[in-house]
Design a protein around this nucleic acid. Structure first.
Length: 699
DNA sequence: CTAGGGTTAG
């Protein structure tokens, strides 16, 4: 005994000797003494030696300590339990609860079964614990069996058990049954309503959440912060700012802002309803911000299309020394993908590895999407292969990425593989697959897949799918068939569909149908400047210069607003954003220096034999346009001096002319990295190495 | 010893 005391100077194990002096509460003494698994083992050894473990009260205290209170001691608890002579139901309950709570809900169910076989009486504690285990495993079958047993054993319904039943059914996707349990309850306290509300949120039935909450108000049932969390979640998804604000005001008036979970929900609601600034204000006013609060705010920025702010806030988070988790990184990587911030995203990936974060399905999916959007599809495939699980989202991201990077055939191979793995494709998957067909010019495949949607997969084609199909036919030059296809659509075609056809008409120099498509667009909505340009260019391509100029001048006459061109340039991991209406003064000197640095870099790579030529061409271009060119456009024109094998100038400016897949790009992301220049238009990548674009597919 | 809660992907 002495040696033990020496080993553990802070644990006066000897005081267990005085257990008999506290007969009224030996249990709390044990629980109090066992602060670590090591303490527990000492106490256990001592109790064995003094034969006190035979006392059921004492044995259960040890059991509770091991199974519920101490970390990583569940196996130890099991060994104690297995040595018990005839464990009573309370011992079983402790074990089932411990197993259900720890990583082994499966064993909790098995132990429940054993308890049943040994005819040990179960009670309300047993039922709620085992149901929790079923819920965690999404084991509907087992849950139903427990439910049946509850009914069969004439168990008088208990509020706690009923609440766990609602929880279990909702978690297993059976909201309807959960609702039946809820409706059948004789007494419903706030918690019961909360269970039902959270059941709806888990299944994404946001409308039902609001409906049930309104019913609560109608019946004057008291609600609390947990209720409001569910309702705020729903308000966010439904963009119901009115109700959300009402709850927000209530929270402030009742002084409930101290509840950080509740405030986080409020922040998320405001951000999802487009009120990012309000969200940020609440965030800044929080007295303690945990990972979830930070993640909510970062994702709020990302969803509001303020990705730069999202990355800035992530930086703040690190300065605040709050550890990010997998969820945080999903939003951060999403922001990197939107901004085309490859260097930053690559750093994020190594950070994820360094911090040994779990490669969850959503994180893996986001990594795949990030690399694909940055034009590094090989890395996407690498990530995909490293993932333990892949769901529809994952497969779709990969297929989409392959398609957008010109790997149409491989995209279809992965689609086949997905089907072999019994992952059911959904509507978005089909958009990816169809766009793969159009990039790979696989007309028959495309037709076949489109037709299989309804028949084989019970997916009703949406307007986007029809648009893809028009693109497939149009790109292949089957303009007549594309036109007929539109005419036969069961849903009215929108401007996007006609615009797709118009772009194909330009590519195949079909003036007559271009005019027809243009007319259809104007019937549906005022044409965009891009539509006039497409039509004008079609005329120009067949030599009708006067018509081309006439259509071009219409843009000015009709005072049609041009969508502001936006360029994003990453230099050494920092993303700079430029809009075409920006004057040169809108950016700091720092950024101008960065651009000059970039110009120098391009020159040093040998892409610009004469810098003056680039400047001259930029000036010339500037005089042609009414608007003032901004720095990034000058830069883009500088890129334009790269010569292709066909000796045509690739001009990356307002009209992107790189390869056949670029119809009319408005967003350009450029990157200078080592010896490669990468340019991304909407969804296609062009890698220039030694002055040549890898796609080799020029106009 | 038992019930309900916030952030994430194509």
């Amino acid at each position: 005994m002495a040696s033990i005391v020496v080993c553990l100077p802070n644990t006066s194990v000897t005081s267990i000797n005085h257990l008999s002096q506290f007969p009224e509460n030996p249990k709390s003494l044990i629980l109090q003494k066992c602060k670590t698994p090591k303490d527990l083992r000492q106490v256990h050894a001592h109790l064995l030696k003094t034969r006190r473990l035979q006392d059921p009260t004492i044995a259960e205290a040890v059991l509770e300590s091991a199974a519920l209170l101490l970390p990583n001691s569940i196996d130890y608890a099991l060994s104690i339990f297995n040595h018990m002579d005839k464990p009573e139901s309370s011992a079983y309950n402790v074990m089932i609860r411990g197993l259900a709570f720890k990583q082994s809900p499966h064993n909790a169910v098995l132990l429940f079964k054993k308890m049943h076989e040994n005819s040990v009486q179960h009670d309300k504690f047993t039922f709620s614990s085992v149901l929790k285990a079923c819920s965690r495993m999404r084991a509907l079958r087992e849950g139903e069996q427990v439910h049946a047993l509850i009914l069969k054993s004439g168990f008088k319904s208990n509020e706690f058990v009923e609440n766990t039943l609602i929880h279990m059914y909702a978690n297993c996707g059976q909201v309807g049954v959960a609702r039946q349990v809820f409706d059948g309850m004789s007494e419903r306290a706030t918690v019961a309503w909360n269970s039902m509300l959270s059941g709806y949120t888990k299944n994404g039935l946001w409308d039902e959440v609001v409906k049930l909450f309104r019913k609560m108000l109608e019946l004057h049932i008291e609600f609390d912060d947990v209720t409001m969390i569910s309702v705020l979640m729903a308000c966010g998804r439904l963009a119901d700012l009115e109700l959300g604000e009402l709850i927000g005001e209530y929270i402030v008036s009742k002084g409930l802002r101290r509840n950080s979970t509740l405030t986080t929900s409020l922040i998320d609601m405001y951000a999802k309803c487009g009120q990012v600034d309000t969200a940020r204000k609440l965030f800044d006013e929080m007295d303690k911000r945990d990972v979830v609060a930070w993640s909510a705010m970062i994702s709020g920025y990302a969803q509001a299309d303020q990705c730069k702010e999202a990355l800035d806030l992530f930086h703040e988070m690190q300065k605040a020394k709050v550890d990010a988790n997998e969820v945080t990184m999903v939003s951060v990587l999403y922001s990197c993908a939107v901004l085309g911030a490859y260097e930053t995203g690559k750093w994020v990936h190594s950070y994820i590895k360094r911090k040994k974060m779990r490669l969850t399905v959503s994180l893996g999916t986001q990594l795949i999407d990030f690399y694909a959007k940055c034009g590094y599809i090989d890395r996407s495939v690498e990530v995909f292969r490293a993932m333990a699980f892949a769901n529809v989202f994952t497969w779709t991201a990969l297929i989409q990425g392959l398609a957008n990077n010109g790997e149409g055939e491989m995209a279809l191979d992965f689609f086949a593989l997905m089907r072999e793995n019994n992952v059911k494709p959904n509507d978005v998957t089909f958009i990816a697959v169809l766009s793969a067909c159009s990039h790979a010019c696989l007309v028959d495949q495309g037709r076949h897949l489109f037709n299989s949607m309804r028949r084989g997969f019970d997916i009703e084609p949406r307007i986007e799918h029809y648009g893809c199909m028009v693109d497939i036919l149009g790109r292949a030059g089957l303009l007549q068939e594309a036109y007929q296809f539109i005419a036969n659509m069961p849903i009215p075609p929108n401007a996007v569909v006609w615009r797709t056809l118009l772009a194909s008409c330009k590519a195949h120099k079909n003036v007559e149908m271009a005019e027809k498509s243009f007319d259809h667009i104007t019937l549906l909505e005022p044409a965009h400047s891009g539509d006039y340009i497409l039509l004008s260019n079609t005329y120009a391509l067949v030599g009708r210069v006067e018509d081309a100029l006439r259509v071009r001048s219409l843009i000015k006459d009709k005072e049609i607003k041009k969508t502001p061109g936006c360029s994003l340039i990453e230099l050494d991991g920092v993303v700079h954003e430029f809009f075409s209406e920006d004057g040169d003064h809108t950016h700091s000197k720092e950024i101008h220096d960065a651009l000059d640095e970039m110009m120098k870099r391009i020159k040093s790579l040998g892409y610009l034999p004469n810098m003056e030529d680039a400047r001259l061409e930029a000036e010339e271009e500037e005089s042609k346009e009414t608007s003032v060119l901004h720095h990034s456009e000058k830069l883009a024109i500088a890129y334009g001096l790269i010569r292709t094998p066909l000796q045509t100038t690739i001009r990356i400016s307002k009209n992107l002319r790189i390869c056949r897949d670029c119809h009319n790009a408005t967003k350009i992301i450029s990157r200078v990295y080592k010896r490669t220049i990468i340019v991304r238009d909407r969804n296609r990548f062009h890698h220039f190495e030694d002055g040549l674009c890898s796609c080799n597919d020029y106009w």
